[in-house]
Design a protein around this nucleic acid. Structure first.
Lengths: 145, 145
DNA sequence: AACTATACTACTATAATACTGGGAATACAG
DNA sequence: CTGTATTCCCAGTATTATAGTAGTATAGTT
């Protein structure tokens, strides 16, 4: 039940993109430098976020990545499920439906509740919320040329 | 963020012990057979639960394992943290305290909230709750000799 | 003494994660 | 139209955690 680096990195990368939203595209290299993440690894994470439609890209010089939608329209849940996937791999192997005397079914209800609780947190927050937390001290700086 | 088999197995094993609470000790073999878990693997999981004080053991013939406390006194959280450990491995590497313009700090707040949400579910339930779900159809059967 | 169970320790297999590297494709600048 | 900056794509590797196996020691019962 540990949170993967994939998701931790990806969330921070998305926050970087959100902080720069509306400006010029951000390059992998910039994000990787700022967040101290391996260049090539981040590239793959962003590819996942791109194929799930959260990020757009521009190729060539002065290209880079940007959010596909404004930060307030991107739920943290969107990012999380893209990178982390579901918590439980499969259904109860023995029963398609709930069976009262199956311990697997009984415990599975708990795991479902937990999944629901996690999603509850992630659905109530957007990237904008993170930007608001991080933003003010960043606005003074200027990362452009 | 996947739930490990360790925890899924362990939770079901604890439920088996809870279903038998007050009766004779349950052997590893019985639990493993009922839950279709590898004998030797389960042995190790129970060892963890024992060293965290949730389970007691009796050696020798007619020995086995039993809950150290009644099911209503064992929070699912107790079982979970024993087997699964914390969600986040370490603190923010850069700051001992919260720093507003650190993306790591901002996202970490979210992870903390998620951890809190999970614990909320697991602290509001005891093994007794699972027994009540599972119990009635089990009471008719007799697993003793 | 013989038997039945836990207790302990070490080993192995598998899978997932976290990277690393090389080159192809694309677009812009001059 | 050439060079260069960037994304894109694919393949490989290292490390770690999980899941499972094996063997033997130890304690308690009969």
């Amino acid at each position: 039940m540990k949170l993967s680096s994939r998701t931790r990195y990806g969330m921070r990368a998305m926050l970087e993109l959100a902080l720069e939203y509306g400006k010029k595209p951000l390059q992998i290299k910039s994000i990787a430098d700022r967040e101290d993440i391996s260049n090539k690894y981040l590239e793959q994470l962003i590819a996942m976020l791109k194929s799930s439609g959260l990020v757009r890209s521009v190729r060539g010089p002065r290209g880079g990545y940007m959010l596909a939608r404004p930060p307030q329209d991107i739920l943290l849940k969107d990012i999380f499920v893209t990178l982390e996937g579901p918590i439980l791999p499969v259904e109860c192997l023995q029963h398609a439906e709930y069976s009262p005397h199956c311990t697997d079914c009984a415990t599975r209800q708990i795991w479902d509740e937990i999944q629901g609780a996690i999603m509850g947190v992630l659905q109530s927050r957007t990237l904008k919320d993170l930007v608001d937390k991080t933003g003010q001290s960043r606005e003074s700086k200027n990362y452009q040329i």
